[in-house]
Design a protein around this nucleic acid. Sequence first.
RNA 1: CGGAGUGUGGCUCAGCUUGGUAGAGCGCUACGUUCGGGACGUAGAGGCCGCAGGUUCGAAUCCUGUCACUCCGACCA
Length: 480
Amino acid sequence: MANDKKFVKAITSREEDFAQWYTDVVREAELCDYSSVKGCLNYLPNGYAIWENIRADLDKRFKETGVENVYLPMLIPENLLQKEADHVEGFAPEVAWVTHGGMERLQERFCIRPTSETLFCELWSRTVQSYRDLPKVWNQWNSVLRWEKTTRPFLRSREFLWQEGHTIHATYEEAEERTLLMWRVYRDFISESLAIPYVAGRKTESEKFAGAQDTYTVEALMHDGKALQSATSHFFGKAFPDAFDIKYLDKDNELKSVYETSWGLSTRIIGAIIMVHGDDSGLVLPPRIAPKQVRVIPVAQHKEGVLEKAEELLAAVQAAGIRADIDDSEKSPGWKFSEQEMLGIPARIEIGPKDIEKKQVVVVRRDTREKIVFSMEEVAEKLGDLLETIQKDMYDRAKAFLDSHIDEAVTMDEMKEKFKENRGFIKAMWCGDEKCEDEIKTETGGAGSRCLIEDEDAISDTCIYCGKKAKYKVFWGKSY
RNA sequence: CGGAGUGUGGCUCAGCUUGGUAGAGCGCUACGUUCGGGACGUAGAGGCCGCAGGUUCGAAUCCUGUCACUCCGACCA
């Protein structure tokens, strides 16, 4: 009777209904709460703490490359947004407008920023005059608003948190270098800190960011076989800055154009962490960004000395530089185990009367559920290594999953068949014609071009769809 | 924006077909017993049934309108 789980609410399994599993995890791990405004989230402590850690880690990496942080307004006058044609066209359908100030209708309406290229450019057009003012390598941590029709927590919300980096440079080469550098920073961050493997490359013409000359993407593979664009770095060339008339006087006394980049990573990445690492018991967080890395769970804590010993252990673990807490609530141990697993805390320490007697503790890994017995003295010092092992194993498992979901195809029939049996990425040749790209997406039931593959040998000479001469090798996949 | 669905204590839902003034489980509070994989007992607190009209002696229930949310598509970080 003690283990009768009839009334305990379990989350939906991943195999049964992946979308429902995702929603269950988000809710049960208390990452966020649906607000009264569609598509806007209440970030709860568990979810926001993950974002804070992502932010701290990434911000450090940015600053190591010379990035400076700034903050620009949330409102953009309509005329500014209109300045770059492709950009307006790209964002117009999904911007929200502020039309009134108090009771009075505004002469010119403001849009709530969907992104801030225009504000940065307007600022630089007034302030950049000399080659001595270059480059500008700026970033801001903020939120943006896009009036999405369909929303899902973290993956697609109307307001979302992100960072948007914007830079201008004197030369084409320098700007391009920066674009590639930030792309590198994202890839390192995502694989090293989040334990998420990826495929990466340049976007096709149709998949590029509105107004960009080149867009470089980092694509992660979710457990259901769908891709998630996890970070992007854009090279704008000088079209955008020229539209805003950003000009500087060079050493040779000539007025010259600047070259621009922008790059961003959003709270969407939290969705990737959930869908890459999570399992049927809930969230599994990579130790490096987990708000709490270890939880101490006393067993039979009412018994003489248990709680004291547990507190002692917690202090020792914290002293070793590990983010740890203790669950000394009145709940049963079983409940606490499940809770710790749901929250994705990478490891727990169980300590009860039997352990104290034997001067040991039981450490349980979240990712594998493996139980390891440590002596009381060594646990604090060995935990750090264990967390690193967990981090590495999580990456390796995800990498093995990704590798086993990458395949290639030469004919459409082969491609369609492979998308049916083994979702993920399929490599195939493409002529470069947007029509073929569209048709491939339609025929495969939604597998679009994810990115170009530019460092590998061709599979064949002809486009998989039309049979004409192939220009590109491409990763195709269904995506979020 | 198309298709489908749902709005009833904090949560999940029953009640609606056939109108009579609101229920269950979980959670919450207090006390007691428990404690190595989501414990149990007893006693409590908590809801003008999404909103606005209408029909009726009487509406959670029937009618009209409206708003919101969820899921599936098309569009997007």
